[in-house]
Amino acid sequence: MTTADITSAAGPAELPPGPSGGPAVRLASAWRTVRRSRRLSIGLALIALFVLLGVVGPFFAGDPNGFSMDLAQPPSGSHWLGTTQTGQDVFDQLMVSTRLSLVIGVAAALLATAISVVIGIGGGFLGGWSDETLSLLSNVFLVIPGLPLVIVISSYSRGGSLTATILVIAITSWAASARVLRAQTLSLRTRDYVLAARLYGEKRWRIVLVEILPNEAAIIVSQFIFAVIFAILTQAGLAFLGLQNPSDLTWGNMLYFAQNAEALSSGSWWWFVPPGLCIAVFGAAMSLISFGLDEVLDPKLRVYRPGRQKRSRRQPDRQHPDRQHPDQQQPIQGEEAAR
């Protein structure tokens, strides 16, 4: 045995300072995190605006289906966004549409994410036959052409309820994320910390929920964000094709009516531009949030920007040599320090 033993003195000085504390501190640090990324703050601000419009807007808006005598009026003081061919107020319609579009988008995305989490993580963790079966299922859903299927189902349930729309979108959009989650789970379940939990006899459901799931939170959140975008776009597409109940006002339905009334050729831009713009801006805002989250959560992407001038000066000589090129095994290329 060792001739002498030194009990190491790991005093408090050894510990690097780190954040800790209650909910107030956490909130403050979350706020700091948000502010670190400009993309994240812009994205969140835009989404907050949409949510506000969707929640509060309809209470202030007049009856979106109420006809008036102002037919196809351009924007004015009484009709902020003008009127449709049948005299409905576009702004009122937009408020109501925003609410329904958001509801459909979020609900369908929640459902799709839930399915993908259960099937992806479940299969990845259980392995064996359950994994084979669940993989097969997601592969089948992956190769089914999504849009035609949605069209077929929607036309079957034409005039069907909101729930049907949500279900249809969710069912056709979970498979890809399930595969990503399965792959990630396969890698996580052989991590040492998961093995350690198995070694002290942790129950399976606890390993999945407590040890594995939190480490996939970033992926799940980003998939949810893109699922929302996908759901809103799909719904808009379906509505535009006339496959949705026309009495449910959404951005897509507004475009459908505008298209039917030949708003484009008659020059009634105020009718189709607002819903179209809403769809585009909403999608962009969600993407910004996703990229922004990546930026603040992944330290590798957290680049410090020393200042515009320096960066632009260094940009041109930055080479990213192809790592596969044989030259790169040896010190041929690379980037030298700015002096």
Binding site: D192, Y193, L195, A196, E211, P214, N215
Partner: peptide, 11 residues
Amino acid sequence: FQDPFASLNPS
């Protein structure tokens, strides 16, 4: 375990 960076759960 061998790798103390992999054997503790980061979350």
